[in-house]
């Protein structure tokens, strides 16, 4: 009887003492945090991709709560839907950011860009890039070893085994920018997704003079400026023998696609053309 009593007393006493201690400590060292941070975090997709520029979703949640307005904050993964939820939690307004997507700007598939040598090191873009310019004559183009594929947390970019060029799965891409940072050749750009995912862009990064880049690859931009001449919206600029279409000015008229002599400008997700006749007439008028 005595033994039982003693053990109950000791255990019970210890339990009460510890409970008081824990309560005291938790009160003493309490971290006061805005409860809305948790709410916002719960509304975020929890991908922790860093595409917003903050360390993880919680970092972004803190930034959202602290910011005066949400104009410059955007969750690329969740898009307007998620941001709307965040805004309603915080009682702020939200601007719609145009959805963006990663674009690989190299068209140098095996048929367009012949291999000149055989790389026999570790199949890793960064390692090959540090060693030399690549298997083809173009020192600007895609190496095809898939650093971007490794970097992508969403499985949205995959190197096509036939063309050896990575392809972006638009439905999966959250434009977090991990592939942009991974590519040693700086080929990948985050561009506006465009209405119905329709985009026009220069599918090349080669800054060599025309004859040199053309020699290395059939579909390289040669800096001929024909696209600038046909563009009615002044959306195209050329720097260092390379054209660039600014996605904020481009109205997707696709005149440059027609004009490009090397097919370096590509259009994506447009319905098949039926306006060829019109275009031809236009040229006649000119």
């Amino acid at each position: 009887m005595n033994t039982i009593l003693i053990s109950i007393l000791i255990l019970g006493g210890t339990g009460i003492f510890l409970a008081v201690l824990i309560y005291y400590v938790s009160e003493k060292f309490k971290v006061i945090e805005d409860p809305r941070i948790d709410e916002v975090e719960a509304a975020l997709p929890a991908a922790n991709c860093g595409g917003c520029g903050f360390p993880g979703c919680r970092g972004f949640a803190v930034a959202c709560v602290e910011a005066d307005s949400l104009d410059h904050l955007n969750c690329t993964v969740g898009g307007i839907e998620t941001m709307g939820k965040v805004a309603s939690i915080l009682g702020k307004t939200v601007v719609e950011h145009a959805p963006t997507v990663a674009v690989v700007r190299c068209g140098g598939t095996c048929e367009h860009r012949p291999r000149m040598n055989e790389y026999d090191g570790v199949k890793h873009c960064f390692i090959a890039h540090n060693l030399y310019s690549g298997e083809t004559g173009c020192s600007w183009g895609c190496l095809g070893f898939g650093d971007c594929e490794l970097a992508c947390d969403f499985g949205a970019i995959k190197v096509n085994p036939v063309t050896k060029i990575p392809e972006v799965d638009e439905d999966k891409c959250t434009s977090c920018g991990a592939c942009v940072r991974a590519c040693p050749k700086n080929l990948i750009e985050i561009r506006k997704k465009g209405p119905k995912s329709r985009r026009v862009y220069v599918n090349c990064r080669n800054k060599e003079k025309g004859h040199i880049s053309r020699k290395a690859c059939n579909v390289s931009c040669i800096g001929c400026k024909k696209c600038i001449k046909v563009c009615p919206h002044e959306a195209i600029t050329i720097a260092e023998n390379l054209a660039f279409i600014h996605d904020d000015k481009c109205k997707l008229c696709r005149k440059c696609v027609e004009a490009c002599p090397t097919n370096a400008i590509v259009e994506l997700n447009f319905p098949p053309r039926k306006i060829k006749v019109e275009n031809a007439e236009l040229q006649h008028v000119e």
């Binding site: 090191g121 570790v122 890793h124 960064f126 390692i127 540090n130």
Partner: peptide
């Protein structure tokens, strides 16, 4: 390919 990877890390 030990050195390939070490060079990558080193850079």
């Amino acid at each position: 390919p030990l050195l390939d990877y070490i060079r990558y890390g080193k850079s």
